[in-house]
Each structure stands twice: as structure tokens, then as C-alpha cells.
Amino acid sequence: MTTTAIAAVSSSAGVPLKVDGKAIPPVGFAQMTLMCAVIGIVLAVARVSGAWGGAARRRTRSERIRASTRTGRSFSR
């Protein structure tokens, strides 16, 4: 819903929502966001369950701290 609203506001503000000259409907943004979220969840579940050979190993404390720090830094930029 938020994605659709942002696309609609952007479109009304004059931001071109076009690819190769064809307009993208605001609802299309929401559909693509939902589709990509579902794909991401499926990939994450497959990775955690060890679907691609071998069980997923437990991360060490330092790896978890490093990953959390990098995630926090990426949001602060």
C-alpha cells in the first residue's frame, strides 16, 4: 500500500514512471514489491533449512556482531 502511494504521489509530482516510453501503473510497483518479498522469503527459508546441500551452520558471536554492525552502518548512510 505504501509503495503504491509513493508511486502515485511521485507520478502526480511529475516524476516520469516510464520504461521504454511505456507508463508503469502505480499498482505495478506494489505487485513487484510483493513478488520480490516473497522470493526473498523463499530464498531465506531455503538457505536456513540447508536446502542447497548441508545444514546451515550456527554463526559465531563475532560473526553475528559483525553482520549487525554492517547492517546498522548500511542504514545510516
Rank of each mutant, 00 (worst) to 15 (best):
T2C: 07
T3H: 07
T3Q: 12
T4W: 04
T4I: 15
A5P: 02
A7P: 07
A7N: 05
A7Y: 03
A8E: 13
A8N: 06
A8F: 04
A8Y: 05
A8C: 06
V9N: 10
V9T: 10
V9H: 02
V9C: 11
V9I: 15
S10N: 09
S10E: 07
A13G: 05
G14S: 10
G14A: 09
V15C: 15
V15L: 15
P16W: 02
P16C: 04
K18R: 08
K18I: 02
V19F: 01
V19T: 01
D20V: 04
D20F: 04
K22C: 02
K22W: 00
A23L: 09
A23T: 09
I24G: 03
I24L: 14
I24V: 15
P25W: 02
P25R: 06
P26G: 01
P26T: 00
P26M: 00
V27L: 05
G28D: 00
G28T: 02
G28N: 02
F29A: 11
F29Q: 02
F29T: 07
A30C: 01
Q31W: 03
Q31Y: 05
Q31A: 10
M32T: 13
M32D: 08
M32H: 09
T33I: 03
T33N: 13
L34N: 10
L34R: 15
M35L: 11
M35N: 13
C36V: 07
A37F: 01
A37N: 05
A37D: 00
A37L: 03
V38G: 12
V38D: 14
V38K: 15
I39G: 07
I39F: 08
I39L: 13
G40E: 06
I41K: 15
L43C: 11
L43M: 13
A44M: 12
A46F: 07
A46N: 12
R47D: 11
R47Q: 11
V48G: 05
V48W: 03
V48S: 07
S49G: 13
S49P: 04
W52A: 13
G53R: 11
G53D: 04
G53M: 10
G54L: 05
A55M: 04
A56Y: 04
A56S: 14
A56N: 03
R58P: 15
R59W: 02
R59D: 02
R59K: 14
R59S: 15
R59F: 02
R59T: 08
R59H: 08
T60Y: 00
T60S: 03
R61I: 03
E63F: 00
E63P: 01
R64C: 12
I65N: 07
I65D: 14
A67Q: 07
A67C: 01
A67P: 01
A67F: 01
A67K: 06
S68I: 09
S68K: 09
T69S: 05
T69W: 01
T69R: 10
T69I: 09
T69P: 01
T71S: 09
T71E: 07
G72S: 11
G72H: 10
R73N: 14
R73T: 12
R73A: 11
S74K: 06
F75R: 06
R77H: 05
R77F: 04
R77W: 02
